[in-house]
Every structure is written in structure tokens, then in C-alpha cells.
């Protein structure tokens, strides 16, 4: 069977529900908030992200580790003067995954 000349796997992809395109890693509420914050900037300090997302240091560390493992977030450690600081940024893969996740959410929200 075909629709508008589309057949086989293309048809399946076209008709798949948007929930199948939600990203498992980003779907968790705290991780979605972290990625949403990082999507707005080139790089942000760990403490600023923690305050914005309103979680503890340990929760943020754990969630960032998951995102880092998925290749979505890059962690950079450095110093400002003598103070150690940790910087977080979204990778290209992470940004693409977030964009796709938002598109799927919008599609579901509009359904």
C-alpha cells in the first residue's frame, strides 16, 4: 500500500508517532532543563546551571555525567585565578538531539 507515492520504510517513518522521536536521554525532566539551559549559550559555569535548574550539586553532577556519556554535553575544568571552575557546553550532537526532541514535543503538543 502506498500514500502519495511513498512506499515501504519511508511510509513507516512518515507515519510513526512523534513519541518515537523523543530522545530517551533528554526526556527526563531535569536533563531536559539542563539541555534547555545549555542550548541558549556557548558555555555556562556549573554553578550558574545548578542555580538555573534549581538542583543540588550532586544531582547536577549525576545528570551531567549521563548527558556526557551520551555525547550531548562537554565538561571542561579550569581555573579562574586560583579557584577551580567547571564549565558545561552542549555538543553538536546534543544540540541536534535537543532540536529534534523539541520538534517531537511540539508535534505531540499540537496533536
Amino acid at each position: 500500500m502506498s500514500t502519495d507515492g511513498v512506499t515501504g520504510p519511508a511510509l513507516v517513518t512518515q507515519h510513526r508517532h512523534a513519541r518515537h522521536r523523543l530522545d530517551e536521554v533528554i526526556h527526563a525532566p531535569v536533563r531536559l532543563s539542563i539541555v534547555a539551559v545549555l542550548a541558549q549559550v556557548d558555555e555556562a559555569e556549573f554553578a550558574r546551571v545548578r542555580d538555573e535548574v534549581e538542583v543540588s550539586d550532586s544531582v547536577l553532577s549525576k545528570q551531567v555525567a549521563t548527558l556526557e556519556q551520551a555525547g550531548y554535553v562537554k565538561v571542561r575544568k579550569g581555573y579562574v585565578g586560583k579557584r577551580p571552575r567547571t564549565w558545561l557546553s552542549l555538543t553538536g550532537t546534543g544540540r541536534a538531539a535537543y532540536t529534534s526532541h523539541l520538534a517531537a514535543l511540539r508535534e505531540i503538543a499540537g496533536a
Binding site: 532543563s33 505531540i108 496533536a111
Partner: peptide
């Protein structure tokens, strides 16, 4: 992937788009 209702999707979108770290 767990199911998500349109209302939940709207809430998540609102949360994601409501952040403002870059001041």
C-alpha cells in the same frame, strides 16, 4: 519510550523554552 500526553508535552515545552540563563 513512555507515552506522553499533549498536555505533558506542552508543559515540558513551556519549561524548556522558559529558561533564561543568558542575561
Amino acid at each position: 519510550m513512555q507515552d506522553i500526553t499533549p498536555q505533558e508535552a506542552r508543559e515540558r515545552l513551556a519549561r524548556a523554552e522558559g529558561t533564561g540563563i543568558d542575561d
